[in-house]
Design a protein around this nucleic acid. Structure first.
Lengths: 231, 231
DNA sequence: GCGCTGCATTGGTCTTACCAAATTTTCTGT
DNA sequence: ACAGAAAATTTGGTAAGACCAATGCAGCGC
């Protein structure tokens, strides 16, 4: 929040224009003036936005929001920029996340190394301490799930799943604002960890599926209730 | 190939330095001179590379290759730049692809619209024509698989899977250099399409699994034989 | 061998400038 | 009044130069 980042600010600014007339955004020179930076800075940022397929720069014509689907990374940027993510995309991400993590649990139960187990133990210990102190989960949840993905030893897998958590970063605190949910999640994490330790792929999958089911229905209910962002 | 692109060329150039001494890349000024462009151009490109977590710019210190895992998009760039993809990452991508596409077949069999079916029919017709003319598959294969992913109606899913095909773009011609393989693949595509049409999720999954098994073992054998890139 | 000093290097930023294509405005002829 | 041509303006693309402050390094002195 406090961190001022031209990339996120510019993305937010551009989206604030919505579907202005022909969809053309302010010129580079205008943007430079608006953000009180040089044109070079704006161009550097626009280059990134263009690489993410968020924006399209037509030579000597102007800057436009892309109609093509943006890159995966763009979703993470949207979340970071505080842009109201499309509820549909949130649901899509949750659906995908479930697919990924259940499979991750299966693979991890066969491939997890001692290092993975150690890290998971540390994460669970931190979770327990946090909850014992009356706090709520947040990074610990993300760390736990991502560590399981890492335990698949498939780095491409890890990269993809990182996006989900970047997307959910500002939603986690909301989700875990209920202390009960923290405790319940933690308990389920422990069960999943035990299944991984026993290298019981079927059990790990089943537990992960049940664990994510809760989150999925929570978000599904929330987004159908409040269609727009929950900032 | 013919298309000169500073982004891909710069990426390739930087990687050609490998693990030079402390891992520091040439300075922006040197790179600008090397590519005969202005420093601004180099900085714009480096900004993209940094956003992809391929490169790290340390203020007043230098440019370094990131040790952290790069973004998903970076994999597509690597392929486009003709960089020798890590065989391990290729395997990882193939493994993931199988996970994704089998699930996609399941979801698509329930959600495919008439539009999806129409497009799949058109793609299959194009494939058939190509093969009848003695040609080999290439884009048709990619289009077919991606259309199935699109038929899940999950755009995030689609984005992720697009990366695989960007990665494999220059590998497809090699894979399909064997005319037999083209014909066999096409026949399997037709079967999968029929399963989708019947909305038989189990059959679609099974067929897709078998279909990808062939590709998986092909690539696995090829990369263990030739550890490095296959141009 | 160690610590300090000073200088060249380097990324970060801004300014100015010019080009050529695209766009908008103005002008012109009917 | 309108359509089309011509001129002026805007816009992205690119380059060159300059300054800053932190970094890194070489050389010096101890």
């Amino acid at each position: 929040m406090s961190e001022k980042n031209l990339l996120t600010e510019l993305a937010a600014h551009l989206y604030s224009f919505g579907e202005t007339e022909n969809g053309r955004m302010p010129s580079e020179r205008e943007l430079a003036e608006h953000f009180a930076v040089s044109r070079g800075q704006i161009r550097e940022t626009l280059a990134i936005l263009e690489a993410m397929r968020i924006v399209e720069r037509r030579a000597k014509s102007g800057i436009f929001l892309t109609t093509r689907t943006a890159s995966v990374e763009a979703l993470a940027l949207f979340a970071k920029a505080g842009l109201p993510l499309d509820p549909i995309q949130i649901y899509e991400a949750v659906e995908l996340r479930k697919i990924h993590e259940i499979k991750a649990a299966e693979l991890a139960s066969a491939r997890a190394t001692d290092e993975n187990y150690d890290r998971l133990r540390a994460i669970l210990a931190a979770s327990e301490q946090r909850i014992a102190a009356g706090g709520t989960l947040a990074e610990e949840d993300r760390d736990f799930h991502l560590e399981i993905v890492r335990a698949t030893q498939n780095t491409v897998f890890y990269r993809i799943c990182s996006v989900y958590y970047a997307m959910g970063e500002r939603r986690l605190p909301i989700y875990f604002s209920d202390p009960d949910r923290s405790a319940r999640s933690h308990a389920e994490h422990v069960q999943i960890f035990d299944a991984l330790l026993k290298r019981d792929a079927n059990l790990a999958q089943a537990l992960m599926s049940a664990h994510l089911q809760g989150a999925e229905s929570y978000w599904k209910g929330l987004i159908t209730g409040k269609p727009s962002g929950t900032a």
